[in-house]
């Protein structure tokens, strides 16, 4: 449904006097299947939005090609526009119009007739639980209501693919859960959904497949389960009373520790093959060296651990 090859984009921006080129996206190859929720995970500035904007025909790639729902991005952007929907990170509604007006207008911009556009708007308002506010100006909406209007706009013309740039950022947990349901419903209708997110739990729970992006490149790709399986073993989180650096020196030499990261002043992240078996040994080693523990935790690797091993940084920190 979506296929990209070597998609590239760099921006020339002025920094004081000198001009500097930012390589926002450096060669992205992706294949997304029909009816899939595909997640794009990455820290701020990774190039997620830039990739989406290229695929949505908003900016021209410097290089590479892409095919969306059978239409070629370079040679036939008009057809691409007809087949996709795009919901921008920053929203897209006008303060002084109402949700209903926005939906009707947007449908009509896709060439849909007046009566049909009204019906579609009505259906979308219902589906996104907006009927109650439909005729109020958008400036009176809450953040979550406004976000729902954005998404309703993006799919008003029944696109084959919809791009959602951070659809849940700024929503409270309940609205977020609602939004997940909406997105799953789109998939159930056969739509291919491409979302970006900062939330690991979201990528994990919602997405069929994910790609982790960092510095304009895709560093890992697969189902959440596959990616986590790539990191064999378990993760043990240790907090000591005292310096984590010193504790790290003690544990580094232990044979069962495959990898070790200090996460803050007193926290350590240990990758081991079998947590249940190795935890007592960790305790013993620290005890012998005279470290007092404030906590120890065992858990299965998360997407954050995947990110950490692929990029050497934690997604939460960056």
């Amino acid at each position: 449904m979506i296929e990209t090859k070597g998609l590239r984009k760099s921006f020339r921006s002025r920094q004081g006097r000198s001009k500097k080129a930012v390589d926002a996206v450096r060669g992205v190859d992706l294949v997304v299947a029909q009816g899939e929720i595909f997640g794009f995970l990455g820290p701020n500035g990774a190039g997620k939005t830039t990739t989406l904007r290229m695929l949505a025909t908003l900016i021209e790639p410097d290089g590479g090609e892409a095919n969306l729902a059978g239409a070629d991005l370079r040679t036939n952007p008009g057809e691409v526009r007809r087949r996709i929907g795009y919901v921008a990170q920053g929203g897209s509604t006008w303060d002084e119009s109402t949700a209903r007006e926005e939906l009707v207008l947007h449908a009509r911009m896709y060439g849909i007739g007046k009566a049909e556009a009204r019906q579609r708007a009505e259906r979308a308002l219902e589906a996104f639980q907006l009927t109650e506010y439909a005729d109020r100006k958008c400036k009176t909406y809450s953040g979550g209501q406004r976000r729902r209007v954005d998404i309703a706009l993006g799919i008003i013309h029944d696109p084959k693919i919809v791009f959602l740039d951070e659809p849940t950022t700024g929503l409270d947990p309940q609205s977020r859960a609602h939004m997940w349901d909406e997105i799953r419903r789109l998939r159930a209708e056969g739509m291919t959904v491409f979302i970006t997110t900062h939330y690991l739990d979201e990528a994990d729970a919602l997405c069929d497949r994910i790609a982790i992006m960092d510095h304009g490149e895709i560093v890992a790709e697969g189902t959440p389960a596959e990616l986590k399986r790539e990191i064999s073993g378990d993760v043990v989180l240790v907090t000591v009373e005292g310096s984590a650096q010193d504790a790290a020196k003690v544990l580094e030499t232990e044979p069962y520790v495959t990898r070790l990261e200090t996460s803050d002043e007193s926290g350590l992240r240990l990758y081991v093959n079998d947590g249940a078996r190795d935890m007592p040994q960790i305790l013993r080693a620290l005890d012998t060296a005279g470290f007092a523990l404030s906590s120890i935790e065992l858990h299965r690797p998360s997407l954050d651990d995947v990110f950490l091993t692929k990029t050497g940084r934690s997604l939460r920190e960056s």
Binding site: A56, T57, L58, G78, R81, R82, I84, G85, Y86, A88, G90, G91, S92, T93, W94, D95, H106, M109, Y110, G111, L153, H157
Partner: peptide, 16 residues
């Protein structure tokens, strides 16, 4: 103001 609100970008993804 329309640019900032995202209205122009929203228009530009349609075939209008």
């Amino acid at each position: 103001a329309e640019l900032r609100a995202g209205v122009i970008e929203r228009s530009r993804v349609t075939p209008v």
